[in-house]
């Protein structure tokens, strides 16, 4: 297999630092070759596309909307400050942040509940029940709300009967409902993984040292579940920021979010450089968040 393996036994020589270094280098190459297909692929179809987004965001717009790699300018980026655009960016940030908070609050209570069921079999069963919607088609799950919120749907009828709400479809609350519904499982799973791993004797120790239930939770349980909170928040916040399907199906003209706005640039608006700049902005937020995650992950692990 390797050169060393084929060497006849009689030629084995005693170890020296050079031979060891060579053996180590051989191991490294072996590892490198294993990773080559995946990383070559990801470089070709992820990293380079990621770079090209930024390149095109400085290009100028051709007649068909396609970018022309000439006449480099900052037009697309300065366009981000236009009132209409900044309204959409602001709205998207607000929607993504609020959705993350809602998912976190509901998801935490939910994950905590599952993780504290005494029987392992109960926990497993409940977890499977979470996995099913997690694996189910996102489009179908969003579409389901389209039916539920329709003008003659039951939810609208209940709202109108009680006078609490009217027709929700194509409004911001409908978008929120859809996003919450769509992303909740992404929050629950990492939270559950983190909470289930907690050594409850630590909480008991806290209680033993005169911490009240609330204090024990705030000072022990919550910090210990931090990795799950961070992972879940990223898994909800970033995709929410670029959400497209949900606002497209459940929202209306007044609820345009970044995702729809970007798609428009590649469709009706025919402005690819601007679409690239918008995508680039999301990527910057994503990269920063990822770095933050690995930083904190290194601290908590």
């Amino acid at each position: 297999m390797t050169m060393l393996d084929q060497r006849p036994d009689s030629q084995q020589e005693a170890a020296n630092p050079e031979l060891e270094r060579r053996a180590e280098r051989r191991e490294s190459w072996r590892g490198f070759f294993h990773a080559v297909p995946a990383y070559a692929y990801l470089i070709a179809f992820f990293v380079l596309p990621l770079i090209i987004v930024f390149v095109f965001s400085f290009a100028s717009r051709g007649r068909t909307g396609r970018p022309i790699l000439d006449n480099w300018n900052l037009d697309a980026w300065t366009k981000l400050t236009e009132p209409l655009v900044s309204t959409i960016v602001g709205r998207s940030l607000f929607v993504a942040a609020l959705n993350t908070v809602l998912c976190l609050i509901i998801g935490y209570a939910f994950a905590y509940w599952i993780a504290t069921r005494p029987k392992q079999s109960t926990r497993t069963l409940l977890l499977i029940l979470v996995l099913i919607p997690f694996w189910s088609n996102f489009l179908v799950r969003t579409y389901a709300w389209r039916i539920l919120l329709d003008s003659d749907g039951y939810i609208t009828q209940i709202g109108e009967f009680t006078g609490l709400w009217g027709r929700m479809l194509f409004t911001l609350p409908a978008v929120f409902l859809g996003l919450l519904y769509g992303f909740l499982p992404f929050m629950v799973l990492p939270l559950y993984a983190a909470i289930e791993r907690i050594d409850w004797s630590l909480v008991e120790a806290g209680r033993d040292l005169y911490a009240s239930g609330t204090r024990a939770f705030l000072k022990i349980t919550l910090p210990l579940s931090r990795p799950g909170i961070i992972a879940g928040s990223i898994l909800v916040f970033i995709p929410s920021l670029g959400a497209y399907v949900t606002p497209d199906i459940l929202g209306g003209a007044k609820t345009t979010l970044l995702g729809n706005f970007i798609v428009t640039q590649f469709g009706a608006a025919r402005n690819w450089p601007f679409g690239s700049a918008l995508s680039g902005a999301i990527l910057i937020v994503m990269v920063l968040t990822t770095i933050l995650y690995f930083r904190s992950g290194a601290r908590t692990l």
Partner: peptide, 16 residues
């Protein structure tokens, strides 16, 4: 693998 030195088993050098 050792960084340095000789490892023998029944007199046969094992090296790396």
């Amino acid at each position: 693998y050792p960084t340095d030195g000789s490892v023998q088993i029944y007199g046969e050098e094992m090296g790396l």
